Each structure stands twice: as C-alpha cells, then as structure tokens.
Simulated assay, not measured.
Amino acid sequence: MNQNEFIKAYAPATVANVCCGFDVLGFALDQPGDEVWARLADKPGITITAVTGVAGLTADPKENVIGVVAQKMLDDLQLEQGLELQLHKGMPVGSGLGSSAASSAAAAFAVNELLGKPFTTQELVLYAMEGERKASGSAHADNVAPALLGGFVLVRDYAPLDVVPLGVPVDMFCSVLYPQIELKTSLSRSILKQEIPLKKGIRQWGNLAGLMVGLLKKDYGLIGRSLHDEIFEPERSILIPLFKQVKEAALAAGAMGCGISGSGPSIFALSATRETAQAVSAAMEKVYAHSGIETKSYLSPVPKEGVRLIAQTTLASA
C-alpha cells in the first residue's frame, strides 16, 4: 500500500449487558456506527488529522481512543511506522450504545488491515479494549467484542480473556430509543450495590443460562422469559426518565424483552420480526412524545458481521 491510499473501516454500535448478562454479554447493531480512516505517514508517530460528527473530541493521539489503540498495536509489533488517522463519528457519545467501543474497534481493524493483518480478529479485541481503558478507566470487552465479531458475544472471563462468539442463531431485530439526557457511566455504576442477595443471584444466573439456551435452541419463548434483569435494572432505571413506561409499551407492542443498553440512557427492545420491531419503536417513541425530552430512535437487525472494511481508496477520492 502506498502513502496516498486510505483504509476505511466501519464499526457498529452495540448493546451490552442485555438484561441478565451484566458485563459479560453484548450484541452488535447494524447502525449507527463510526468510521476510522487510516494511511501510512512519512514520519514516525501517530497523527489524527480529522475528528468529525460530534463536537468536543480531542485530536490528541494520546487522548483519543483511536490513537491509543493504534499506538499499542505499533508498540507490540515493534514498528516505528508513522500513521495518519481520521475519526468520523456516526453515533452519539454517552448514549449507552458503545460509542468509544465503536471508535476503538474501527481503529484496531483499520490499522490491522493497513499493516497486512498481523493480528486475528479475536486478538484485536485486546487492542480495542485499550481504547475502552482510556475512555472509561476499565478495559472491558462486552462492547468491543460484538463490535469486532458481530452477533451475540459472551465474555466468559478476563484472566485470560475468553471471548465466545455466539453468532446470530435466530433472526432478531432491535429497537433502540435514546433519550438525549446526560447519564455518566461513573454515576450509573456508583449506585450499584457490591453485594447481592442469593435468591436474586440464582434467578439472574437462571435467566442468563436460559437466554444462552434459548438462542442456541432457537426458542423465542425461552429468550423472552429470560430477558429479565433481577439485580441491576431496578437500581439503574431510576436514572432514566419514563423507563418503566417505555418498557411496558415495548412489551405490549410485542417485544420479547426490553432493558437498559449498557449503562444507559438508551433503552433497547428485541423482537422476532422487523414488523414487530417497527411497532415497538413507535410505541417507545410515543411514551416520550410529550415529555420535553428529545429522543433518537434506531431500528436494526442483529447482524452476523461486526466491523468491516468500507473501502480502500486514494487520498484524492477520500
């Protein structure tokens, strides 16, 4: 590849936790998502030449997640190669949809393509996690793993990292409602109790196991019965206006389950068909119609593919 050619990579939004899978389960959406453009540079070091789509994100490669991810990859390969990067955000920041994960995943994929694919996709999860560490202080994988691998992904353990791609065993469509309020992940985590009652833990483990079995057996009824959070949703939902009403509306419209995406404030609902998902989206939007809170809605299948190459193009056409 010559220095006038760009790699363009796209990584999608993700839903983490998925009700009963707190910090261990996530799935990819088809949209929205982020793009990262990468090309070789004449001089060593990383330069971020553009950050578009949202205001307030730094172009400092030591502070922006795409620069952090790229530098870690170069360091591990012991390369002094220079890189020029651009970040084009297509998704909101602070939405609970894995914004930093999408940027990190797209950066890891684009740089890997540019350097001749020295890393496997599963290895890229570790590099994308470095972006999450920079963004939130915690190198978690429940967003970056589905962003890179697509479908549903189980993070079984971190020591060592054990990521289990589940794919998309059944057709699934996700309705997402994003109330445009500020909800910091730090606040959403700070209200969580550090100990849980045994009875609630048992019900939660049963739901997570039921969800896994339901996915693998293509049992929509079992999936729906298992999409319940006994522990964290009751505490976190008080931070999201009208959450209870939105959940009730989604379930009444035919959703299999509904919950908080990541740490919120986005609310997700899963349906078996696109038609049902459309009805669910309309029902969720109606709850907020006269609330005075602006919202964005997304409707997406759960895709088999996560991050992907958009194009390899010349600088002039980019």
Rank of each mutant, 00 (worst) to 15 (best):
Ile223His: 02
Ala250Ile: 03
Lys200Gly: 11
Asp229Val: 02
Lys218Met: 10
Leu216Tyr: 08
Ile223Trp: 03
Gly221Ala: 06
Gly210Leu: 12
Ser237Phe: 04
Gly214Pro: 09
Ala249Glu: 02
Ala255Arg: 10
Glu230Val: 02
Tyr178Cys: 03
Ser188Leu: 10
Ile238Met: 13
Phe232Asp: 09
Gln194Ser: 13
Lys199Tyr: 12
Lys244Gln: 13
Gly224Phe: 05
Glu230Ala: 08
Ser263Tyr: 00
Lys200Phe: 09
Lys193Val: 04
Met212Cys: 15
Ala253Ile: 06
Ala209Phe: 13
Gly257Gln: 06
Ile191Ser: 00
Ser266Arg: 02
Leu222Asp: 04
Arg189Lys: 07
Leu198Met: 15
Gly259Met: 03
Gly214Asp: 00
Leu242Tyr: 14
Ile238Phe: 10
Lys200Ser: 15
Leu208Lys: 12
Trp205Gly: 15
Leu208Cys: 13
Ile191Thr: 00
Pro241Gln: 00
Leu239Glu: 03
Ala250Gln: 04
Lys193Thr: 14
Pro179Leu: 00
Gln245Tyr: 11
Ala249Lys: 08
Gly214Ile: 06
Gly201Thr: 15
Gly221Ile: 05
Lys184Asp: 11
Ile181Trp: 06
Ile223Glu: 04
Gly262Ala: 06
Pro241Asn: 02
Ala209Met: 12
Met212Tyr: 14
Val246Ile: 03
Val213Gly: 12
Lys193Ile: 03
Lys218Gln: 14
Arg189Cys: 05
Ile238His: 11
Pro241Phe: 01
Ala249Trp: 04
Ile202Lys: 12
Ser186Thr: 10
Pro241Asp: 01
Lys247Val: 07
Ile260Asn: 07
Leu198Asn: 12
Lys218Arg: 15
Gly210Met: 11
Leu216His: 11
Gly262Met: 01
Pro241Glu: 04
Ala255Tyr: 07
Leu216Lys: 13
Ser266Ile: 08
Cys258Arg: 01
Met212Asn: 09
Ile260Tyr: 02
Ile238Asn: 09
Leu215Lys: 10
Asp219Arg: 03
Glu248Leu: 07
Arg203Gln: 15
Ser263Trp: 06
Lys247Ser: 09
Ile231Glu: 11
Arg236His: 08
Ser237Trp: 00
Asn207His: 15
Leu227Lys: 01
Glu195Asp: 14
Glu195Met: 07
Phe243Asn: 01
Lys193Leu: 12
Leu216Trp: 13
Trp205Met: 15
Gly210Trp: 10
Gly210Cys: 11
Arg203Tyr: 13
Gly210Ile: 13
Pro234Ser: 00
Cys258Asn: 02
Leu192Thr: 04
Leu208Phe: 15
Ser237Arg: 09
Ala249Gln: 06
Ser188His: 04
Leu215Arg: 10
Ile240His: 09
Ile231Lys: 04
Met256Asp: 07
Glu233Phe: 03
Thr185Trp: 03
Asp229Pro: 06
Ala255Trp: 10
Asp219Trp: 07
